[in-house]
Simulated scan of single mutants.
Amino acid sequence: MPHLSGNGLSEIWLLKELGHRHWLLLAESAGRPAPDFRDEAGQPVYAAFCALSIEDANFAAARANDRLRITSSLARLSRTQMSSRHHLAIEDRPIGVVTMISTFVRRAPDGGNHTVARVAIEGLPPVGEGTSASKLAGLAAGFRAGRVERHMGFDLHRESELGTWTFNPCPSLDFNGAGFLYFASFVVMVDRAEWRFEPVLARAVATVRRDVFFYGNVDRCETVTACLLARREPTGALIHHCRLRRGSDGAVIGDVFTTRTVADRVTTETVGGV
């Protein structure tokens, strides 16, 4: 049952699946049989995610043997940025919309994950008119430039560190085939931090909204620290902002804003091997 978690549709499985679909859509858009992108020197080019947004989610509605329908589309936002949008439904009931924005990058000559350069790819369709993803792309640019003052009800200038949790990403679990810390692993670390700072409520919640902004990456054997900067505590919900920092130099590599509410069911039995 890789598609389900204890409280409905597995968000981490979903993000991995949509990341894969995004990658295949890029190849299709460029008229290629496979997503093997390279620069003029023949070096690999990757689609690094800049931002993703989960909206109007009802992941708790998913049950075993349900059919999940994913309707996906792709648009070009700029010279190097592409966006995909994925509408999710079970039995014609919408259960969420996921927007993902990526930019084409290549590694620096030293081969590390700290520095990458943006690359333009030939053969892609022209930049389209403003789409629903354009707002998210503009917001992501604002976060990278430090211009955003409020988001999802949080005043970013009034936040303070409420707690920190350090993780040592595992190469066989948290990194992808390109050797980068996989974008879904950013969410995994925030959820593990949530499990530590609110274990009672965390066992019963499912995501209804999540915005993630990516700024950097880590090399193998580097730690990542999740910093809880703000939270609100309405009844039956977990709403918080976590920031991810690279252990080696303290650089901010991501901001994650999350709203999760108590699911209408909670798995109370654990069955090994299922």
Rank of each mutant, 00 (worst) to 15 (best):
R21V: 13
P94I: 08
H114C: 00
V116P: 00
A41T: 15
K16C: 06
I121L: 15
W13K: 01
R69E: 14
A34T: 15
K135Q: 12
A47T: 05
V45S: 04
S78E: 01
G31N: 03
H87T: 13
G42L: 08
V116E: 00
R69Y: 07
L124E: 00
A117H: 15
D66H: 12
I70P: 09
F59G: 05
P94K: 08
G31M: 03
A141D: 12
P44C: 04
L24N: 13
F104K: 00
L52N: 11
I70A: 06
T80P: 00
A30E: 00
Y46Q: 05
D92P: 07
G31Q: 04
A89R: 10
I90K: 11
L14M: 08
A89S: 15
R38I: 12
G31D: 02
P109N: 06
H114G: 00
L124D: 00
R79I: 05
I101A: 01
R147K: 13
D39K: 04
S132I: 09
D66E: 08
L14Q: 05
C50L: 14
C50M: 12
R67I: 15
P35M: 10
I101S: 01
S73P: 03
G130N: 13
G111Y: 05
V119Q: 04
N113I: 01
Q43F: 06
G146M: 13
R106V: 04
E91N: 15
L68W: 11
H22G: 06
E40Y: 11
P126M: 05
A27I: 08
N58Y: 12
V116A: 02
T80H: 00
N58H: 15
I70R: 06
H86W: 11
L24I: 14
S72M: 11
P35C: 12
E17Y: 13
S72Y: 10
W13E: 05
N113M: 01
E40F: 12
T131L: 01
G128N: 03
R21L: 09
D36P: 00
E55K: 10
